[in-house]
Amino acid sequence: MACFIVPAAEAAVSYAVARSIEKKEKNELCGISENGITDQTDNIYDEEHRIPFSRKVKWLTKLLSGGSLLLAYEHVWHGEVTPFFPFLTAMNDPAETSAMLHEMGTVGVSMALLITVFWGGMLLVSNAIEKRAIRDSRSDMIKAAAIRTDDQDKDADI
């Protein structure tokens, strides 16, 4: 009836959260923190292998908003959403309104939860991939440093 409204509302919230985190990350990148100028030398190498959290929140926004849009289309198809007030046909009848609210509370909430859990899984996988990339790049750095030291030792011997 109107289950897509719940994930659509969550999409709006996650969009606002993503924008706010993005702003914070940009400020941090420019070296501006709440206390003043931050030190940029720390963890710059690791940051290259990390996906910004704002981008990860955008994944959730895209999943929720894209899904809601297609579901809204389905509701228009079935005549449950109309282009005129009150936009939802279930709003015309109190009995149908209560059924609609029940559906929003059960199916709608479970849809939003399932998408959020799916996104949580995506976060876990991406974090594991990032950690592996950081570990590989660090070991490459150590190897390169060892080779450089060996070369310097050989030069010193000559």
Binding site: K62, L71, M111
Partner: peptide, 9 residues
Amino acid sequence: FMYWGASLM
């Protein structure tokens, strides 16, 4: 993202 979101829903 759009199709996976809709599929899950």
